[in-house]
């Protein structure tokens, strides 16, 4: 017999590991990736590969040569960041810009705070917002989805439905007229529209949500609270004046709401710990998103909304505590 091991209890462990959780997220992202490849063709593949490889490479380089620690790229978190970054950019984005975005996402968004688990902001969104501000033209020339045969950079570009809507409303056109210029709700649902690579297919993203819930990777609270808030908020606006506000279904299906609510806002590291906190976080994201969409200068605001609410997470964690057992005595 060899030496006995001694450790404090417990002595058994669940087989969940950080790696497994991350790869479950990757699996959940696959349907959306397939839809994007179907709609955007080669561009989607090139953008995803570039983002993933550069994210992994930057993480490895930073850990190895700057932080001088054991590289931990196999844990899958950089892979998730890479895919999410790719999902958040148009498929005709030049490779150089994607690499810059990856550097910002991993270097600034994640490693500068101490690596996995220590970053206050979602790294992929930090990268995306950095690119949006630095390269507004490239970042907002969305390719029109036509089919797989498309080549990479010379794709036909057009505006997103949200962009069309914003332009139309500010030009004073009635919503019903604008609606004729953009795809119907059913088409929006399965993603036949222009936009960032991974945000278009609500159907695929919802499939991913279902998978993650099934595998207990995330809880429903954050996506649900975001959907409800956006639905209610835009619903009220729509009921008040249907001719100058789009309907709630349109708001939920377009832009990055699905991608943001399901994959970006639920990022463990940057979301609150308690269920109550998750609701506050989700409602905050919903309100800020709609505010930016309806009243702001950008047609889409969920990236900013998530980043803003990320900043509130430590505060939420500090003040919103789960109810403790035996805290209020109620004998029944």
């Amino acid at each position: 017999m060899s030496k006995l091991f001694i450790s404090p209890s417990p002595h058994v462990y669940e087989d969940t590991t950080v790696k497994r959780l991350m790869f479950d997220v990757v699996i959940a992202l696959l349907p959306a990736l397939l839809f994007s490849v179907y709609f955007f063709g080669m561009g989607a593949i090139i953008v995803t590969l570039t983002a993933v490889v550069s994210c992994l490479a930057f993480e490895w380089l930073i850990q190895k040569y700057i932080l001088k620690e054991e590289p931990s790229i196999t844990d899958g978190s950089a892979l998730v960041t890479g895919i999410l970054l790719a999902f958040n950019v148009p498929t005709n984005l030049p490779i150089g810009i994607i690499i810059i975005g990856s550097l910002v996402a991993i270097g600034v968004g994640k490693m500068s705070f101490g690596g996995l688990g220590n970053n206050p902001f979602n790294p992929a969104l930090v990268g995306r917002v950095f690119l949006l501000i630095s390269f507004p033209v490239q970042m907002t020339s969305w390719p029109v989805p036509t089919g797989f045969s498309n080549s990479y950079t010379d794709a036909v570009t057009g505006a997103t439905p949200l962009g069309v809507m914003k332009e139309g409303i500010s030009a004073g056109e009635p919503v019903s007229a604008i609606m004729d210029k953009i795809p119907g709700h059913m088409e929006l649902f399965y993603g036949h529209m222009g936009g960032s690579m991974g945000e278009i297919a609500a159907l695929a993203l919802l499939l991913g949500l279902g998978y993650m819930l099934f595998r207990k990777v995330i809880k429903i609270h954050i996506p649900l609270s975001i959907f409800l808030t956006i639905g209610v908020f835009t619903g009220i606006l729509w009921l008040v004046n249907p001719e100058s506000n789009a309907d709630p279904i349109f708001h939920l299906l377009t832009g990055g709401v699905m991608l943001g609510a399901i994959f970006m806002a639920t990022d463990y590291v940057t979301s609150p710990m308690s269920v109550k906190g998750m609701w506050i976080f989700g409602i905050g994201i919903g309100i800020i998103t709609v505010a930016i969409r309806v009243f702001g200068a950008y047609p889409e605001g969920i990236s900013f909304a998530i980043l803003i609410m990320n900043a509130f997470v430590p505060l939420i964690n500090m003040y919103v505590k789960p109810k403790r057992f035996g805290e209020e005595v109620k004998n029944g």
Binding site: K3, I6, S7
Partner: peptide, 22 residues
């Protein structure tokens, strides 16, 4: 001689609260 091996959190305080040592 080490007669067993400790596998808990790396802290003397925790180890000593558990048992007498390796």
């Amino acid at each position: 001689e080490r007669i067993n091996s400790y596998d808990g959190a790396s802290s003397c305080a925790i180890s000593s609260s558990l048992y007498s040592g390796e």
